Computed example of a mutant assay.
Amino acid sequence: MVKKLFIFIISSLCFAFGLKAQTDNGIGRICLNPYIPESEGLGEQSYSMLISKLQQIATIGGMSGAGFDNRFIITAHVQKIKSSQTETIPQKNTVHLNIGIYVGDGLDGILFSSYMSENKGIGNSEDQAMAYAIKNINAAQPQLQEAIALGKQRILDYYNKIADGIINTASASASAGNYDEAVNMLFSIPMTNGKYETAQVLIAQYASKSLENKNMTLIRKAYSAWNTNQTEQGAADASEILEGVQAPSTKIQSEVTKLQKEISSRLKTESDREYQLRTKEQQNAHDKQMAAIKAAASVAKTYAASRPKVIYRHMWW
């Protein structure tokens, strides 16, 4: 009976996750990370405009969002063909730029696709003129989006080759207790990949174990807060800590109830906080599943953001 219940919960989690994945940015999608190296030497305005333009290009190509794998980049290389000043009053700066836009594997330095564009701009400074030239790039230009589509297909081909390896590595990380790391790896497998559903099942399992560990840590902190100060203030501190519990399992609920009874016995009363927390525990199964999924995605994004800054190798291909 317990085994059947476990299978049902995991299946429900995956179904709910599949629905949510289609609406959340980055989940189950291939995402390109806009990247401009410092070596470009761009001014503040032109740099900001170029990052914005690369994001716009990726968005039109369906490849924007906060993804879980930062190895794939959309980048650009700007070359000045001509730069001059007008003879008008006030004087203006004009530029003629050759802008190369590239999609590739920034970690291995592999170019997937590219597009070249020549653009002119005018402004009160050379930086402003360059920003206007960059702004004039048509992000929806068919040849440009064809290059983006080609890059996307090559990324999908890449995942088709390594999906089994990702799952094996993630499983090994989970076996070592590194559930957040494992979940982050599995989130990178896109919806179109044949191993996507397998990855979702594992995400549900590892996310549940990760949450269980985090919830137990909160319970220990709550016990410590109460044991340190067995007064109404100590009870309030413990209850506040317990409010951080997410998608509690039967074991976690039992531990929370045990502490609540101990507090109530000591203080001869139950606080409103405890009643509210008990109500929260009695949420329906769907709400608990969605909470677990949301927490897993949040943990994965936080984990990805905390990793060392990626050093991309591009050499302007």
Rank of each mutant, 00 (worst) to 15 (best):
G41D: 11
Q45I: 10
Q45N: 15
Y47Q: 09
S48Y: 09
M49V: 14
M49D: 12
I51D: 03
K53A: 09
Q55Y: 04
I57G: 01
T59A: 03
M63T: 01
A66G: 01
A66H: 04
F68H: 11
A76W: 11
Q79K: 12
Q79N: 09
Q85F: 06
T88Y: 12
P90G: 05
P90R: 03
K92W: 10
L97P: 14
I99T: 09
I99F: 10
G100K: 11
Y102P: 02
V103F: 12
D105A: 06
G106N: 05
L107C: 07
L107W: 05
L107P: 01
G109V: 03
F112R: 01
S113N: 06
S114L: 03
S114N: 07
Y115C: 04
Y115D: 03
E118A: 07
N119W: 02
G123T: 10
G123Y: 12
N124W: 04
Q128K: 13
A129I: 07
Y132V: 13
I134Q: 09
N136S: 15
N138W: 02
N138F: 05
A139Y: 02
Q141F: 08
P142S: 00
Q143K: 05
Q143N: 05
L144W: 02
Q145F: 00
Q145E: 00
A147S: 12
I148V: 06
K152T: 04
R154H: 07
I155W: 02
D157V: 09
Y159T: 04
K161T: 15
A163N: 15
A163H: 13
G165A: 15
G165R: 14
I166F: 15
I167T: 09
S171K: 13
S173N: 09
S175C: 01
